[in-house]
Amino acid sequence: MKHLETSYKTHDGIELYLQAWMVDTPTASLLLVHGLGEHSSRYMHLVEKLNDLGVSVFTFDGRGHGKSVKGEPTAYFESYEDYLKDIDALFGKVKSFVPGVPAFLYGHSMGGGLVAAYVLDFKPEAAGVILSSPAIKEAEGTSKLLIAVGGIMSKYFPKFKALKLDASKVSRIPSEVEKYLKDPLVYTDPIPARTGNELLIMMRSIQAKANEFDRPVLLIHGSADSLTNPKGSEILFERARSKDKILRVFPGGYHELINDSNREEVIDVIIRWLKERI
C-alpha cells in the first residue's frame, strides 16, 4: 500500500487536500466523500479492507473541512453545486490515474447526499455507488418556518452558526464519540446557516430527481440514526430505476455505521458488495 498526499485547486481557486492509498495491481478504484464536519483521514480502517480487496482509494477534505482549511475547520461552503464540481473533477482524476478498472463512489452522510446528487446531475460512468447514512431527507417534523428562517439567514448571515448536531448520536461506542469530539480536524460547533441551507436545497433536488438514479447502488443506514433521516435512503431505494439496488437498514444503528457497535458486519456488507461487482 502506497500513501500519496497532494492538493487540488478547484475551479474557483480553493486548495483542497487530497490523499490516496494505492495498491500495486488494482482491481478497482474508489473515490470516498466524507461527511459534514469530519475529514477524510477518519476512514483508515475501511481503507485497509478496501486495499486488501485490491481497491485503490482516493479521497479529499472537502470545502471548509479538515486540512483543506488554513487554521481551524469551518464546515462552510457557498454552494453544494461547487462541491459537486469538485467531486466531478476528482472522479475524473481517479479514472485517469487508475485506468481500465471499475471506478466506484462512496459517500457518507453529507457526502452520501453529495454523491447521490452528483450521480443525478452529472451522470458519471461509475461502476457502482455506496451511500452510507446519506443526507437525502430532512428530519421528520422540520417546520416550514424554520426552513424559511434558514433561507433568510443563509442569504444575509451565511456564516452564522445555526444548527448544533448531537455528537453523542455518532456511535453507540462511547470511545468512538470521545475520539470524534477530541479530533482537532473535526468541526463540532453549530453548522453555518449557508451550509445547512445548501444541504436542504440539495436534499430537495435529490428527492425530486430520485427516479433518474440508474447506477448500481448499496444504501446502508441505521434505524436509530437521528443525524440523517433513514427515510431518505428508503425514498432513493424505492424510486431509483437501478436494476441493481440494495438497501440494508441496521436495527438500532447510529449514524457512523463503520464506527458503530456492529462495524465488522457493516464493513463486511460493503466489502462483499464490492467484491461481487469488480
Rank of each mutant, 00 (worst) to 15 (best):
S29W: 02
D61H: 04
M202L: 15
I271P: 12
Y43L: 07
L247V: 09
D244M: 03
L247R: 04
I220L: 15
G71V: 09
E198L: 10
N262E: 15
L114C: 13
Y180V: 04
P184F: 08
D189M: 09
Y76V: 10
H221D: 06
I220C: 05
T6C: 07
I220N: 00
H3Y: 14
W21M: 08
I191D: 00
L120P: 11
G150E: 02
S205V: 00
Y106T: 04
G141L: 06
I87C: 08
P102G: 11
L274P: 05
E48A: 13
I147N: 00
A89N: 14
P134F: 06
K275E: 15
G37F: 05
P73K: 01
D244H: 01
F77P: 03
F91T: 01
R63H: 09
H255E: 05
N229R: 08
T25I: 09
G66S: 09
Y76I: 05
G252H: 03
E72Y: 08
Y76D: 10
N262Y: 12
G64H: 08
A210L: 07
S168T: 15
K137N: 02
E176I: 13
P230G: 12
E265D: 14
I258W: 14
A167W: 06
G196P: 01
L165A: 07
L165N: 01
P124C: 13
P158E: 11
G113N: 06
I270Q: 04
V69H: 06
K169E: 14
Y180D: 05
Y17M: 10
L236T: 11
R239V: 02
A135K: 00
K95I: 07
S109R: 01
V69L: 05
G35N: 08
K169W: 01
I147Q: 10
F213I: 13
E238V: 03
E264W: 00
N259W: 04
L31G: 02
T10V: 09
Y180E: 01
N211P: 00
A139I: 13
T74E: 07
G54Q: 11
P73S: 08
S168P: 01
L30R: 01
N229I: 11
A117Y: 01
A126D: 10
N51C: 12
V186I: 15
E276M: 12
L4C: 11
A240P: 08
G13Q: 13
V69C: 06
P134A: 07
K275G: 10
S223K: 06
M1C: 06
P102H: 12
G13A: 11
A240M: 09
E125F: 05
N262C: 09
T74L: 03
H65W: 09
S171W: 02
I235F: 11
L131K: 00
S261F: 12
F157I: 13
I220S: 02
P190W: 09
K243R: 15
L163K: 11
F77N: 03
M22W: 03
T188D: 02
V266A: 12
D260Q: 11
H255M: 07
G37A: 12
G112V: 12
K155S: 14
